[in-house]
Design a protein around this nucleic acid. Structure first.
Ligand SMILES: [Mn+2]
Ligand SMILES: [Mn+2]
Ligand SMILES: [Mn+2]
Ligand SMILES: [Mn+2]
Lengths: 220, 220
DNA sequence: ATATATATTTAGATACACCTAAATTTAAAA
DNA sequence: TTTTAAATTTAGGTGTATCTAAATATATAT
């Protein structure tokens, strides 16, 4: 069975909103995520239901099916592999890749993806630290915590960002936070939850709770 | 102004059929080239006329405009750059690239094409020997003749193929003809126009007039 | 438990890209 | 110069993906 570009995009959004199929998803949330109207989402849900990639009960959200998960993971795999390609080979900055990958992920050719994967040396994570599913849809997830939830004196390594918007990524570039950086929580302000962080044992950095909430850390 | 994927494909076909804008093009020929019906072509011609990428007079063919040429050459540039990428970097065979490039050529990102061009070291020709227009749409055309039109004892170098179908390219692979090969016409059969060719001073090769007509040679 | 608010779906349109069948126009032949 | 044939366009229709406005169902509050 073949999915259209629009169907692939919806399914990917549903996969993310449902936390990998764990939660049920609401029409309005999909509309918000996809920048469309709820009426358009209803239409699409019926179609996705007919194709059995979701289980759809009118008025009561939906669940992504196993088939649906496979399709979603396939698209996510392609998206992230292309992001690696753009950064590693074409010198894109990590805040410039998303839009283009959003298009490239829909190119249909299994050979292309196999070759791309091999050419990139089978990367396990994309430029934002997100894991790349293998060709069978298996994802090796790392245990990661939001930086704002860490306690004073705890240490770890930045492994991913939750928000991949250009604005956020450029902010991180500016202050010198990057994937792979070793960090330590020096202080936490009770009042607003903002933090003081030591980066790579040399640089201190202040950030709001909001920013810290979008930085994911592998604790050590 | 933006063109849709379908519009880009039509415009590219029109550019090729019109020999780069020199000849006027017929509806039926476009339909044949695009594997659609003449009625669908008429629809599209009206749209392309409205967008002023062609000059369309009902019942009397059409001419591609200067704007149209620029768009067509841009798509052709992208197609050929991607073909180079697939062959040079992802080890595709030259008969495997067309379908994928047909999709990749529609990805919209000027940065992507600039970077790809630079990454590939500004190639001047694609894997089939066709010239790659530069970012301004300028094409450096080489003077080339069809192999079947060469005379006995004339020499040259294979620089391109006219037919890029997988069947033809695999046939060339099998007999050992390739872009860059130095050739000499050893004999021509009056009766059917078939030829005997010396390849790289060591291998002789018999081919029909039909095959030779699809091989383009830079004479020396 | 009834009324109100919110979420969701349906109805009815539009734009795109295609199709078949019928009408029309131009080109070719008698 | 009619007639016939071929090329082309128009009419009417389908499927996809969107929209706004209206209807309906579920959830929340009084
Ligand atoms: Mn996408
Ligand atoms: Mn990413
Ligand atoms: Mn194409
Ligand atoms: Mn080519």
């Amino acid at each position: 069975m073949e999915l259209t570009t629009a169907e692939e995009n919806y399914l990917k959004a549903i996969y993310h909103l449902s936390d990998g199929g764990k939660k049920s998803v609401a029409t309005n949330d999909i509309a918000a995520e996809m920048n469309t109207k709820p009426a358009s989402v209803s239409d699409m849900l019926r179609k996705l239901g007919d194709k059995e990639v979701i289980e759809y009960r009118k008025y009561y959200g939906l669940q992504i099916t196993e088939t649906g998960k496979r399709f979603a993971l396939q698209t996510i795999r392609k998206h992230r592999l292309w992001e690696v390609f753009l950064v590693e080979k074409l010198n894109f900055a990590w805040d410039e890749v998303h839009e283009v990958a959003e298009q490239l992920e829909h190119i249909q050719s299994t050979l292309l993806i196999q070759r791309l994967d091999s050419y990139l040396n089978y990367p396990k994570f994309d430029p934002h630290g997100d894991p790349i599913p293998d060709e069978f849809g298996d994802v090796r997830a790392r245990p990661r915590v939001q930086l704002n939830e860490m306690e004073i004196d705890q240490t770890g390594q930045i492994v991913a960002v939750k928000d991949s918007s250009a604005a956020f990524l450029r902010y991180l570039d500016k202050v010198g936070a990057y994937i792979g950086a070793r960090i330590k929580v020096l202080d936490k302000v009770e009042f607003d939850g903002s933090l003081e962080i030591l980066v790579d044992q040399k640089k201190t950095l202040f950030m709001s709770k909001d920013v810290a909430g979008n930085i994911l850390v592998l604790q050590s």
